[in-house]
Design a protein around this nucleic acid. Sequence first.
DNA 1: TTCCTTGTTGTACGATCGTTCAACTAAATA
DNA 2: TATTTAGTTGAACGATCGTACAACAAGGAA
Lengths: 201, 201
Amino acid sequence: MMKNEVKYRRKNSHSRRQDLIAAGIRCLGEGGISNFTIDKICKQANVSRGLINHHFKSKDEFLLCIYDQMTAHLVEIDNNASAQQHIVGLIERSFDQNSFEKSNLRAWLAIWGEVATHTELRQLHESRYQIYKNNLVHSVDELAKAKSINIDADTVARQLIALIDGLWLEYCLHSNSFSLDAARNDCYQFLTTQLGEIASK
Amino acid sequence: MMKNEVKYRRKNSHSRRQDLIAAGIRCLGEGGISNFTIDKICKQANVSRGLINHHFKSKDEFLLCIYDQMTAHLVEIDNNASAQQHIVGLIERSFDQNSFEKSNLRAWLAIWGEVATHTELRQLHESRYQIYKNNLVHSVDELAKAKSINIDADTVARQLIALIDGLWLEYCLHSNSFSLDAARNDCYQFLTTQLGEIASK
DNA sequence: TTCCTTGTTGTACGATCGTTCAACTAAATA
DNA sequence: TATTTAGTTGAACGATCGTACAACAAGGAA
């Protein structure tokens, strides 16, 4: 007889939830919301079909947890970083080759598509966006004041977010149209016209 | 007896196809790709379940026709318009209250989400984008030359497209965050920094 | 009026959807 | 070792998915 003939290995609730969330994000990334299926998610996570409903109340709540995971890093703030470092970090992270592979266009499209339907998801989405934007407004304002430049920080933040999102979207949809370097430069050029010279890195 | 006791009224193939396409776009807009269902589309179009497969070979081909319809106006060019009118028209149309209601975020998100999966859809998408962008590059280049401004038209076009798309996305996802007027102004401000003063309308 | 074309209906099919739940068992506890 | 806890399985449910197709009928042609 073999020694380890166990049919499956147990994990504690937290660890298994993480596995399932990662599998869910992978499914979203590979085939959008149509691929976001109990069957396929469980297959991705190498667990049986019924397990996901043991760890999550419903599919909707599961999606909420996935959104939480996907956006957590966007609202984290490094208190040791300067305003400029915060802004530059945001741009660099948005167009970094490594993190880029992970953040998947289709996963985001799917999530955004669901925001209109699911009340709780929309609430979390709004809340995350407010924090994300306020952090940026604060940094832009700080930087402008340090440089004695008179601008509307709210407007500049909105424009920068739009530019980043638009470039990101455009790159994902037509990756051979331009490079990530070009996208980064576009952002820095915009910042320079608004806030003067920025040391990009 | 009533005069018109007909069970249904016929339409020619073209007219019925248009009805179904309109219904399909409405379904996409209301609930994304999950709502894009033969059942629901036919209900929207007030026809029976089986009719759609009579007028379209498959659901995939139907989606292709929908994309064609949704993007047709983006690649049309008015030969009587100046370069500046072309660019201004693009911005105005992107953030016009009326046309805005029709062009629905979720329909676009759903379409973009499918681009990665369906080969033919991706090909049409790439082709449309190339035309759309080339038209803009051409206008930017013409305007810059007329003003004797030395810029890279390709870069400016890319940035403007990204800004428009990003603002549009941001507005759709957080419509109470800023106004369509603000979005328009953002675009004109960007253009002004690149090409000098633009008469916005 | 009768015939014919073709637009339209509605049922049927197998596959897959999200969820439930009884049964099982890995692994910690006593 | 025996008992308990709780993580896991897999079958089953009704609903809905995309597609196929035989039957029907609207409306023009003869």
